[in-house]
């Protein structure tokens, strides 16, 4: 049993290097012929381990809010199939984490790569982003482009002309230090 507590303590110290948010924001935008499509999600969970540079995202797909509720329904029912694939995830690393000095406020350019899973399809992805260290918290921002086609998201012929081939995705996170137990209470 003693072993448990040793391990507990060990993971306790490890937790100090972890930052997290559960109110991260991801939005996407695509400019269309008939009308622009825009959606916002402010319920993204993300962890950043500053000692290893490990970075993960979990995105509940039903939390994307659209301007028109019909678009939202179609997004969930027909395109992303959120009943089958309720979450999109990212698991990857910040390549140049050692360049970021957490003791000093400032903005740092970072390179991220990893595996992005949308609609049950996993693809490698590279992205540039910025980390902003300020008063013990870390802000993160990145822009990525996603092709629905890459993730087996089928767009019917009838509306193919109306939905862009590339979707612009904006990612905005504000990380706080993570304490395993405290984090459970909102």
């Amino acid at each position: 049993m003693g072993l448990f507590f040793v391990l507990l303590a060990a993971s306790g110290t490890q937790a100090q290097s972890r930052y997290f948010t559960r109110t991260g924001s991801i939005s996407f935008f695509s400019e269309e012929i008939l009308e622009n499509i825009e959606a916002h999600n402010k319920q993204v969970s993300s962890f950043l381990d500053v000692s290893t540079g490990e970075l993960v995202f979990s995105v509940p797909m039903k939390a994307f809010q659209f301007r028109k509720s019909l678009m939202q329904e179609h997004f969930n029912e027909n395109y992303i199939e959120s009943h089958k694939y309720p979450k999109s995830t990212f698991k990857g690393n910040i390549q140049n984490m050692k360049d970021v000095n957490l003791q000093q406020d400032g903005t740092y350019k970072v390179k991220v790569n990893g595996q992005l899973t949308i609609h049950g399809v996993t693809k490698p992805i590279d992205a540039d982003g910025t980390l902003e260290v300020k008063g013990g918290r870390i802000g993160a921002q990145s822009f990525i482009n996603i092709k629905p086609e890459d993730y087996n998201i089928v767009i019917p012929l009838l509306v193919r002309g109306h939905i862009a081939e590339i979707i612009q995705v904006t990612i905005n996170m504000l990380y706080e230090p993570y304490q395993a137990n405290a984090a459970k209470q909102p």
């Binding site: 972890r18 997290f20 559960r22 969970s45 993300s46 962890f47 381990d49 490990e54 993960v56 995202f57 979990s58 979450k87 995830t89 698991k91 984090a183």
Partner: peptide, 8 residues
């Protein structure tokens, strides 16, 4: 970490 994030 991903399991933690998904649970959250």
């Amino acid at each position: 970490l991903l399991a933690l994030a998904e649970a959250d």
